[in-house]
Every structure is written in C-alpha cells, then in structure tokens.
Design a protein around this nucleic acid. Structure first.
Length: 486
DNA sequence: ATGTCC
C-alpha cells in the first residue's frame, strides 16, 4: 500500500491516481484526492487538504468529498473541490460554491487560421481590449436599469436572445441552455442588482481573460470533428463570472446564514463553511439567488461574445456568421445544482457543489446537447497565459468517480501576494511577446504578475490525470495568440 | 474572485 505523508495527513493510494483520506472523528465520510504524486505534493503545500477534511463535516455529505488534481486552497472549501450533499437532509453551503458564482468558460469557433491573423495580431488585441470592459470598475457593454437586471437574473440567455445579443444556437451550446429556471430575482438584494447593473458585459480582473488561440494538437479526431475543431483553427476562449453581483449574493447569504444557523455553524470546523439546512427558507432563498447569479454570468459571457463577434467582423471585414464564430460550448466552474446521482445503487437528489470543477457528463447523457451527445459533453480547461488550454469530453467514469465532474484549470501554485514578489508584470508581458509571440493587454501590470505562467501548476499533468481516471478525455490542446485581461 | 474593510 502506497501512502503519502504530509504534515498532518496520511493518504493511502487506493487505486491509480486516487488517494484516500480515512474517515476520522467528526468526519461524516472519507475524502478523496485525484492526483499524481507530483500534483499531490503541490496540493499538500497549502491548506487544501485541511479544507477538504473540513468539508467532510458538512451534514448530509455523500462519500467522498473530492479534490481534483488542480486543487488549491480557497475560501473555506478548496478550489478544485466537489461535494454532493443530500438535497433533503443535508445542507447548501455558499462557500462551497464560491464567491464568483458561475465563473466559467466558453469557447467560440472561427473559420480563421493563424495565417489570417498574421500581422493583424496587435490590431485585433487592441480592438478587443477597447471593446470589452476589463478590470475593476470599468463598466459594462450595456448599462441596465433595475428592471433590465431583473430580466437578466430571471431569464439568463433567453434575455440575451430576446434582445438580439444571442442566437438560438448559443443557448443550445451552453450548460443548462444558459438558463436556470429556479432563479429568483426577488431574493437578490438591491445592492447586488445595483452592482450588476453597471457590469453587464465585463471581464473583471484576476484570472479572468479573453484569449484568441490556435488549435495546436488533436488527440481524438472524431470527437474533435464532432466539436467542429481542426488543427490550426483559430478559437476564442472567454473566462469570467458574475462580477460584483455574484460576489454580493455570496456575501449577503453568508452573513444571513451565519446569523440564522449559528448552531449549525458551531458544529463545523471552519466558519467559512457556513451552511443552511436543506429545505430551510434561507437554503431556498440562497438557491434562488445563486441561480439568478448563474443566469447573470451566462449573459455576461454572452455580451462579451457579442462584442467579440463585432470586433472580428470589423477587423476581418466579414460578418461573424461568415467567420464561423459559433459558440462551441459554455461550462460553469463554480456552481451548485440539484442533480440526481446513483449512490451505492440508490438514486439520490443531491446538491452538487462544484467549486473550481467542471461538469463532465459522459457520452449519451441526456443533458449533453444533441449535437455532442454521442461523444460526450465538451469540457473546457483553460491553462495559464503562456501554456494554452484544453478541450476535453466528459469521461465514461465521471458519474461513478466524481459526481459527473472533472478539473477546471491548471490551479494556482502560489498566492497572488507571493506571485507579485516573484514576477514583474511588464517583464512577463515582454517575455511572452518576444519568446512565444503571445500579445497580452491588461489594465494592470500587477494582474499580469499574479497570473504569470509560473504561478500555475502544469495543466498537461492535470489533464493527464483526468484522462487516466476516465473522468474527462482530452480532445484538443490550444495555444495562445493574444490575451486581454483586467 | 471582489467598489481587496463595516
């Protein structure tokens, strides 16, 4: 039996790339880490394992609490974590979904090749940077009224379709069709709505970005073809979330839950895991508000898509349909959802908390869009600015091993503070341009330093783990051409 | 992640 010893933890390797943290006093279930030894060492380097162990204390959690190969510490609950908790007898925990509700990624196809961009990279990166608000306090593509925001929260991408910012196919190619019916705008505070009103169509800051990339490697020709991807194709990756609105929803409900369910909080090892009992009024209200924030984030990414299509049409003097700029798929990385999973042979309704984890439904799953159903759900895993990204398809084993989930990115190796001590933004930017011909535009040099390629784990290794476990199989790998960020 | 503190 192979064991892994960290400061306060002993994990046993129970299967390849699978590490078990035994159930001890206070834990309701064992925990599991999916990682290679190298990645596990990196994961053990911050508070991830402690946070993972804490998660097992949540009432109603099913075995196991999971950390993905890209896990790193987060607010209470590791980023790169999955917890399935009984939707009747368990709890819902905002910190286990995250502050940036429906932070996620989408990929747009194009019919362009890198040669078509030759010599136009700087024009394109500047035009995108100009057209898409990024950074803190930059405004949005549209400024709405309160009733605009309420329609967005209520209808998600259906609002974008009605307003002419989206086409039907955009909705078809979005997780949950870009719309959560359980959304309830009435339980979103006016403060949250007011923040969202000015940020509708904005990238934000931190690790959020828009990147134009080329498809570099193909691992599965037939799935790639089903996804409409081929070698040397130019694609666009958009990574952002629900901005201040989602953040405010999380803040509002954490405060309310801490007060209203103080007794439950007392029984938990970390107050950042504050949770509302399933079925309680606060659990219902939070679920309605979280779903509304999820809808907001989809519209946010759609408005950025709308602007991206306009910029490409302008730069290449062809309309976006002619450029083949269809939405490949849009996946959420930070969400909670009531799903039915077969657990120990019994179908259970659970709140699946995915925080820095991607839904990865296998071939044949009814929730995979028809166009992709035979091959599995597209899963988009962004790497760092310098390392490219992956498109995967949901793996055959994802339902059995990870509640239908896989990793979401490279995962940080160090804190933002540490990153700024190790890197200087302008140097990183100059190096990427000189050595890799990657053109980066950012509102702040500090953000580039915080997001330097060296700040991240090895995305290739993360994807290799996902593939070997059978929870998500690589289809193509992309490489950056240009990147805009906050 | 985030009008990086109520």
């Amino acid at each position: 039996m192979t064991t892994f010893e960290a400061d306060d933890f002993t994990l046993e390797r129970t299967a390849p790339l699978t590490w078990k943290l035994e159930q001890e006093a206070g834990m309701n279930v064992p925990a599991r880490v999916y990682a290679s030894e190298t990645l596990l060492e990196e994961i053990a380097d911050d508070l991830s394992l402690e946070q993972l162990r804490n998660v097992t204390h949540l009432p109603g959690i099913y075995e196991p609490a999971i950390a993905m190969p890209d896990a790193h510490q987060g607010y209470g609950f590791p980023v790169g974590g999955v917890a399935a908790i009984d939707a009747e007898d368990g709890v819902i925990s905002p910190g286990s979904i995250g502050y940036d509700i429906n932070c996620g990624v989408r990929m747009l196809r194009t019919d362009l090749t890198p040669e078509d961009l030759n010599g136009k990279e700087e024009e394109l990166v500047d035009a995108l940077f100009d057209a898409i608000p990024s950074g803190l306090g930059a405004g949005g593509v549209v400024e709405g009224t309160t009733s605009t925001i309420e329609a967005v929260l209520d209808q998600g991408m259906k609002w974008a379709l009605d307003q002419g910012y989206a086409v039907e196919a955009d909705l078809d190619h979005c997780e949950d069709n870009g719309f959560r019916e359980e959304a309830d705008p009435r339980v979103v505070s006016s403060e949250a709505k007011d923040r969202g009103r000015k940020q509708l169509g904005s990238l934000g800051s931190g690790n959020h970005f828009l990147e134009v990339q080329r498809v570099e490697d193909i691992y599965d020709e037939s799935v790639a073809s089903a996804f409409g991807l081929s070698e040397d194709q130019v694609v666009v990756l958009i990574h952002c979330g629900s901005r201040g609105l989602g953040h405010q929803v999380c803040t509002d409900y954490l405060r309310k839950i801490e007060q209203e369910h103080a007794d439950l909080l007392e029984s938990l090892p970390d107050r950042e895991l504050a949770a509302a009992p399933a079925g309680s009024p606060l659990a219902e209200d939070y679920y309605g508000a979280m779903n509304a924030a999820i809808n907001f984030a989809w519209v946010n990414r759609q408005l950025i898509t709308y602007q991206t299509r306009r910029v490409f049409a302008d730069v290449f003097d062809r309309d976006w349909q002619d450029l083949g700029m269809e939405l490949l798929y849009d996946v959420a990385h930070n969400i909670g959802k009531k799903e039915t999973h077969e657990i120990d042979g019994v179908k259970r309704d659970v709140y699946v908390h995915r925080k820095g984890a991607t839904r990865a439904f296998p071939p044949g799953h009814p929730e995979v869009p028809e166009a992709y159903r035979a091959v599995g759900q597209p899963v988009i895993i962004p790497g760092s600015m310098g390392s490219g990204s992956y498109v995967l398809r949901g793996g055959e084993k994802s339902l059995e091993k990870s509640f239908g989930s896989t990793a979401h990115g490279a995962g940080r190796l160090m804190s933002r503070t540490q990153a700024k001590q190790e890197f200087w933004g302008e140097d990183v930017q100059d190096e990427l341009e000189a050595e890799e011909q990657i053109y980066v535009r950012a509102q702040s040099g500090a953000t580039i330093a915080e997001e330097a390629p060296g700040v991240y784990k090895d995305v290739d290794e993360v994807v290799r783990v996902s593939q070997e476990l059978g929870i998500g199989d690589p289809v193509v790998r992309t490489f950056p051409i240009l990147n805009i960020k906050g």
